[in-house]
Design a protein around this nucleic acid. Structure first.
Lengths: 159, 159
DNA sequence: CTACCTGCAAAAAATTTGCACTTCC
DNA sequence: GGAAGTGCAAATTTTTTGCAGGTAG
């Protein structure tokens, strides 16, 4: 059966090889934000005739076609998720690396207003919150996390 | 004369070698967000007895001490700026790569509220706007930019 | 004096690419 | 049939590290 991502590929006129079909299926089923290595692992479990190089080439292609979106949650590897109609953002639990999605209309609007105030038209946004569960481990016991993308917290591949 | 960053280093008990002093001075004078390569170039112009390895080791150390902050504006290289008391964010002009700093108290507050709503305590934030000057090149003529960190726009090292 | 620094070059880690060989349309 | 896709391994790019000397405090 044709997966959602595969359908999108066909709609945009991509040549559908066996490899691409498998990767599309894996992406359609993913409930998380896998990196390329993980994607490759899942795809080659379904069909061994797939290489990492092709996985890289495919995600890049799908990103260019607007079918996938690349994310960076720190940890030095790109992560991917299917484009969705609803704009959403991510909160990364710095203790566990777990990724939580959320929406916020007020924020959407505020960003546009900020860009306009500076004389710009918004093209894209990067917005990630790194946070710690309330009532978690005592502040004292935990080493201070870094600004931006914490280097030490390799985010788990979870949505 | 002792630079601002050098003073901070001494305050935090860092052993001040010649190399560190030079890098500290370069950072104090920087009006932009240099990457390590650029930092190394500027430092070794002042004193040739500095290696890239030391530059990497030094920025990492200063980041751990909270003296520097690492940023990622896309383009695959980390960029650095001295920590400032006022929280601020960055807007990257996708046409020119130029980086514009801005503050927004409303946004500061909104982020904290969002984290709290999800049951988290904010640790750090990544927030960058990628945008295009109003009244710039016609939409049609410009290739569609990607979400997240545009791959093609190597940000210039400018504040 | 000695723990910490540094330079050099080699190692890592993630991603891209050249090339000869398939494969979709 | 021909343009486009693929695998493999080598190349790239950015950052880190091991080791044999230096150097600050």
């Amino acid at each position: 059966m044709e997966s959602r991502i595969e359908r999108l590929c066909v709609e945009r006129g991509l040549k559908m090889t066996g490899q691409r079909r498998v990767i599309a299926r894996v992406l359609s089923q993913a409930e998380d934000h896998p990196n390329v290595e993980e994607l490759y692992r899942r795809a080659s479990a379904l069909d061994a005739r797939i290489s990492v190089a092709t996985t890289y080439r495919t995600v890049r292609l799908l990103e260019e076609k607007g079918i996938l979106e690349r994310r960076d949650f720190g940890g030095g590897r790109a992560r991917y998720e299917p484009s969705e109609s609803r704009r959403h953002y991510h909160l990364i639990d710095v203790e566990t690396g777990k990724v939580i999605e959320f929406e916020d209309a007020e924020h959407d609007q505020l960003m546009r207003a900020i860009a306009a105030r500076l004389g710009f038209d918004l093209v894209s946004v990067r917005f990630e919150l790194f946070a710690r569960k309330l009532g978690g481990p005592s502040r004292q016991a935990v080493r201070k996390p870094r600004a931006g993308a914490p280097r030490e917290a390799e985010p788990s591949i979870t949505r």
